[in-house]
């Protein structure tokens, strides 16, 4: 018997305009999982993620986080216990980097000294110079802002990390280095991570479990090594393009 799952979706449906955008989904994310949610756009990835922090309410079924039903938990308390990096980062533009990172610990009314020390640690963890603490978000590059977003999500020492397109519009090099950092953090901080990404390559390279959604249903849920050969047409459609790219790039290499 495995330990209780950190997130547990039980026959969950979300209906918008008479149409099920999440259609009877059941899924359990176990402690220590690094799961990627992927699929074509409109497949329901972000909705499934947001159900776990009660930013979307289920029309049918139940969502449990750490064994508690999110529908009956105070949403503010629930969200403060979870690390969440939203799509487009969403740093508070009027707060410095340090203030952004300190946001959740301050909501939890941690000691100012603890917070100050924690901000310094977080800057180190996301590999940003400590001098960045006093910068405003407008003075950061896209990659730096994403790192601050990650630091903000992790500042209050959550056990669960939810990421919505964390590599958004980053250039490939920044993507790779932030991706590596993320995997290291997941491992070192003993996190459970659920990451939404539209890019199958990111899912395959970072996660140890890939969940593919198609029209609000789960069509595949497998480790990367197995997923690549999964027979479902929706999975094959997702796999085809990066595999083809990889083959063509490999062919360019002169033997």
């Amino acid at each position: 018997m495995p330990p209780d799952p950190v997130i547990s979706y039980r026959s969950v449906s979300v209906v918008r305009g008479g149409h099920a955008i999440i259609d009877d989904v059941s899924l359990a994310i176990a402690r220590g999982d690094f799961a990627a949610l992927t699929g074509a756009s409109g497949a329901g990835k972000t909705t499934l993620l947001r159900l776990a922090i009660a930013m979307v309410a289920a029309d049918a079924g139940q969502v449990l986080v750490a064994g508690r039903d999110v529908a009956t938990t105070d949403p503010a308390v629930l969200r403060r216990s979870i690390g969440y990096a939203s799509q487009g980062v969403g740093l508070f533009p009027h707060w410095t980097v340090a203030e952004n990172i300190a946001a959740v610990p301050r909501l939890l009314q941690r000691e100012p000294a603890w917070i100050a020390a924690r901000v310094a640690v977080m800057l180190d963890l996301v590999e940003l110079p400590r001098a960045f603490a006093d910068r405003l978000p407008a003075q950061l590059s896209g990659g730096q802002a994403s790192r601050v977003g990650l630091a903000r999500a992790l500042a209050a020492e959550p056990k669960l990390l939810l990421l919505d397109e964390p590599f958004g519009a980053l250039d490939p090099e920044t993507r790779a280095s932030l991706g590596d950092r993320l995997v290291a953090l997941h491992r070192d901080q003993r996190l459970t991570t659920l990451m939404v990404t539209h890019d199958l390559a990111d899912a395959l390279l970072r996660a140890d479990r890939v969940v593919v959604l198609d029209k609000g249903r789960i069509v595949a849920d497998a480790p990367p090594t197995v997923l690549v050969t999964h027979p479902h047409p929706a999975v094959q459609a997702l796999v085809a393009s990066p595999l083809d790219q990889a083959r063509r790039i490999a062919a360019l290499v002169v033997p």
Binding site: I53, M55, P75, A76, V77, L78, R79, R80, S81, Y84, S86, Q87, G88, V89, G90, L91, F92, P93, A103, V104, L107, R152, A153
Partner: peptide, 15 residues
Amino acid sequence: VPAATLDAADGIGMT
């Protein structure tokens, strides 16, 4: 106020 900022505010647990 940008939607992403509001989303972040809700998502980190502000009332």
